[in-house]
Design a protein around this nucleic acid. Structure first.
Lengths: 207, 207
DNA sequence: ACGTGTGAATTTCTTCACAGCC
DNA sequence: GGCTGTGAAGAAATTCACACGT
């Protein structure tokens, strides 16, 4: 196995790593090893696809035997940099923002919402879960103080673009947005969309 | 323009249609026409890509002028079958389910949550938004009665697979799931994932 | 025998580049 | 001049198929 240059690995392969991780963690409950055929079946990929994907990062398997599940999990966590914790700021504390704050599932995977921000004076100061909602005006200092790189946007669509620009100006490097609008940001900023409307419209083509 | 056979259109093209729709609806506010260069810039695609995508469905533009925005919106809505309303059942009324029920954004796009279901007796009967939570045992009849094809799953991950199988057995054709687990279902069932953990893990590779 | 890792072949997706029309 | 629609070219992703290690 040689040194890996990230720039060389296609994003489409990277995008499958979290899926592999997910099923590997399930498999871990019941077995020690797996193979490309089994993994492929669980994810809807061909076995060749699985092997090719893995080969981008090294030689993880043994001929005749397959892959050690714990070892794979470890490798993929390292590759994805999720073998550490990440701090996150959440912008927008409406219905959705509240649900996100109350959802305890992020922490199990190492993602911690360190601060929640809104611009509505009625909401600022409110305590949700174990967090007090802060004034959006303070988010820049907060990001600097805790060296935060990831933001989640749960504002109305109309505010998402300006909020995103403000966050980028304050050194945020990656954004997960729930707002139903497409963000225009510098290409070095990673943006992921979690937009149910887009998903439903995609689905409905096939109905 | 000839008859379009859906099977021939690559899913990757279909998956971009909702994005085009989104920016077209924004553009509609301020102008009548647009062109492939402008659309590409707004979405991060090349202008050739935009034109090739559109050409899969017909000839929508005029040389020298570009595309009429309203006309495009109309065409794409028809193609995606979102020029009608769709009824949806929601399974799982925890924090996330509540947020979804309170979110008024689906209806504007023609998606209506007709029924919300849970298996917790403490939650069944509760009124959220303008809906009463129903017993999951009744979902089969409900789906039949209202001829529902789309379900949203907002249960804990541990229950998602069995809930999904039950829904499919009751004739659901498409699922949007928020649960952090990969569903194994017959290939003719469309599944879309809205999984923030997967998105965050993908993002974190690049940080 | 089993199942990986990988060049080669194939298929799919994107971009090029330009004829043709407004 | 501006911009579409599209064959042809090019790039990227996937699958094939098999040598090789266990």
């Amino acid at each position: 196995m040689t040194t890996v240059n990230k720039a060389e690995i296609p994003d489409i392969v990277v995008s499958r790593l979290p899926r592999y991780l997910r099923v590997l963690k399930n498999l871990r409950e019941t077995k020690k090893t797996t193979n490309s055929t089994e993994l492929g079946k669980l994810l809807g990929y061909s076995s060749a696809q699985v092997r090719k994907d893995f080969s981008q990062f090294g030689e993880f398997g043994k001929q005749g035997t397959g892959y050690n599940i714990d070892y794979l999990i470890n490798q993929f966590q390292q590759i994805l940099q999720v073998n550490q914790t990440w701090d996150i700021v959440l912008i927008g504390v409406g219905n959705l923002g509240r649900a996100i704050l109350n959802y305890r599932g992020f922490e199990k995977h190492g993602f911690f919402i360190r601060g929640a921000f809104d611009d509505d004076p009625h909401i600022i100061g409110e305590k949700i879960g174990n967090k007090v909602v802060r004034d959006i005006a303070e988010v820049g200092d907060f990001i600097k103080e805790f060296d935060i790189k990831i933001a989640m946007i749960a504002t109305p669509a109309s505010e998402a673009q300006s909020v995103a620009e403000m966050l980028v100006a304050n050194n945020i490097k990656a954004i997960l947005t729930y707002a139903s609008t497409i963000l225009n940001l510098p290409p070095e900023i990673r943006v992921e969309y979690s937009d149910p409307i887009i998903s439903l419209q995609h689905i409905s083509y096939y109905l």
